[in-house]
Nucleic acid binder design. Structure first.
Length: 219
DNA sequence: GCGACAG
DNA sequence: ATCTTGTCGC
């Protein structure tokens, strides 16, 4: 992709055009070998974004990681989040020496005003299975899940279920999981739980967050 | 019309 | 996201 959207109308048009390419039917593999977590870090007073990808094997050991620090190409606009974070993430993915079986993104997938959040967008662009995991939910409505790890409640938008509020730790605020591309909601939640052995967030995302943050701080 | 709004 | 003191809870 050579041209990147500049205006809101242009970016929304891209989302409308790519949305039909999302595959929400393929349940994807219930168990995967290589899981990648992606996140973007920012440094104050700098017009830069630092993307990071960390790949873990089935035992949650790091097998590869890559980053990309570049000039910001789009402002932060709710609903158009992907146009800000996608560029450094795509570059970082290119720099990996392995191909992940699943990408866990920090943000929305289907749970998005136009049903095309970052996870869907990244899935369509890479062709890889993706899921979105957000720390807050402003799109759709859901009840608070039971306090035990593993319990969940549906996130509804209009008449549709667009994701789940999933408890990854006992008595800790849930995360908001939604389908990205080529992964069922059931499998998405299973992957999230399997990769979250200790903290609130899946280990791949936690490590990518740490990496992107440290790389963004380098002078 | 105004504010809120993934990160 | 990031800037930040104190504060609340375990």
């Amino acid at each position: 992709m050579n041209h990147w959207p500049t205006t809101v109308a242009e970016a929304e048009a891209v989302q409308e055009r790519l949305r039909p390419l999302v595959d929400l039917t393929d349940p994807g593999p219930p168990v995967v070998g290589l899981v990648a977590g992606l996140d973007v870090g920012y440094a104050p007073d700098r017009d830069e974004v630092t993307g990071a990808v960390v790949v873990l094997d089935e035992t949650l050991r790091i097998v590869d990681q890559a980053t990309s620090r570049e000039k910001t190409k789009f402002p932060y606009i709710p609903g158009l989040f992907a146009f800000r974070e996608l560029p450094p993430l795509l570059t970082a993915l290119d720099r990996l020496s392995v191909t992940p079986d699943l990408l866990i993104c920090d943000g929305y997938g289907l749970a998005h005003p136009r049903r095309f959040g970052l996870a869907c967008h990244l899935g369509v662009l890479t062709g890889l299975p993706t899921i979105g995991v957000a720390k807050t939910a402003f799109v759709g409505a859901c009840d608070d899940p039971a306090p035990a790890r593993g319990s969940w409640t549906p996130i509804t938008l209009g008449q549709d279920t667009v994701g789940r509020a999933l408890r990854t730790r006992d008595h800790v605020k849930p995360v908001y999981v939604s389908q990205g591309h080529r992964v069922s909601l059931d499998n998405a939640c299973a992957h999230v739980l399997r990769t979250t052995p200790a903290f609130r967030l899946p280990e791949p995302i936690r490590l990518a967050d740490r990496l992107s943050r440290s790389r963004s701080q380098i002078t």
